[in-house]
Design a protein around this nucleic acid. Structure first.
Lengths: 213, 213
DNA sequence: TAGATTGTTAATCGATTAACAATC
DNA sequence: TAGATTGTTAATCGATTAACAATC
């Protein structure tokens, strides 16, 4: 029944979580919205508004309990349960992702890589041929498919995994996947990010020239 | 003198560019804001507003010339000049990035990888010891440093490259880099993206349960 | 109790959308 | 010319910030 939480808030959740971990790691058990705001470089109002989206976690006059906040956020983000993952595409990126520490740290378990042909395991993870994907998914419950293929075939691959029952896609290919509305897609857009960097770089340079002239 | 272009607009620039390339590749030379809007799944108003930020590129009653738009955007994004790149950190991610096609495609040239010790070249790119970075940067004009190290040392590394004169950082480490205001930083936050995926996945599942009950 | 800090309501700001005159 | 479509101004919407009563 709760009204939908806005994209803007969702994108801040991971940052809150990361800074709360810092606090815990430093043995700090209590934090105020003001302190958190300072750390994240946002306003205290925003912190409290954001937290209000999920219900009040704080205590007036005291602040927030770091451990409680971590537990709440862990549950909200979904880090309190295991996720099984497959990676499609065993090129540079797919192989690198198979060794990505972030997976294991947060309860994501990479079960297999898929490519055109099977191959030697990387980082202890087997590489299977894509034409065995159907039987693999019949035998293994998989929560998340990572798409690390070339852009050209990414859409086809996405349709395939969706058809075979995977409902969450982490997409590294430079395409906008069009999938059914019950399928969740999150993109890592490297080329877009690089373009933004390039744009900002050019801007920064031009500004310096402007000042000089 | 032009007023600053908003973050929201800048983040859409790469998408415009990508879809314009599609159009060109399909031999389409002319496009309207309506057609572009449909492709990007935004409104035609927004397309025209966005373009207005950079000056009017269109012709009333006709639309936009695809080739002209590409040339304009290429210049705005900064793809019309070469950029030289180094990558710090030769782990999984650094190595994968050294082979990233997006670099060469858009005029970014990766000159070297750096790690604790030097090592065998990957993808034709040499790996040098980090303690040779200073002399390397004295001899080579580098525009962009990619940070692909562990989070723990990312900040230290960032400070180092900035000190040695690099003004643009593409950061893959899960930390918020604090650098001088004239330094441009663009982040690829894999763990944050994965958390967002996890959150959305959990939401989608819960909604299904809600409906069922 | 007094001080601190939340949760929430109202005000502000900025981004998106709608509308339409200009014009090709 | 008539139709299409831009560029721009105004209206709407949503997100951020400010303010403050509630309360620990």
């Amino acid at each position: 029944m709760q009204r939908e939480v806005s994209q803007a808030v969702i994108k801040r959740l991971p940052r809150y979580y990361r800074y709360l971990e810092h606090l815990r790691n430093n043995g700090i058990s209590k934090v105020s919205s003001g302190r958190l705001a300072e750390m994240l470089d946002i306003t205290a109002s925003q912190v409290r508004q954001d937290f209000a989206n999920f219900g009040g976690f704080g205590q007036q006059g005291y602040g927030y309990d770091v451990e409680k906040l971590l537990k709440e956020f862990s549950s909200i983000i979904g880090l309190d349960s295991e996720h099984s993952v497959i990676i499609i595409g065993a090129g540079n990126m797919g192989r690198a992702l198979s060794g990505y520490r972030g997976f294991a740290n947060d309860g994501f378990s990479v079960k297999a890589l898929f490519d055109l042909k099977d191959g030697e395991p990387v980082n202890g993870i087997p590489i299977y041929a894509i034409d065995t994907l159907e039987s693999f998914l019949a035998d293994n419950q998989i929560d998340i498919a990572v798409i690390a293929t070339q852009g050209k075939i990414a859409h086809e691959v996405a349709c395939l995994v969706v058809e075979l029952g995977v409902k969450s896609i982490w997409n590294f290919a430079p395409v906008d996947l069009e999938v059914a509305s019950d399928v969740v897609v999150e993109n890592i857009s490297m080329s877009e990010s690089l373009y933004v960097l390039s744009y900002k770089t050019k801007q920064a340079r031009e500004q310096i020239i402007d000042i000089k002239e």
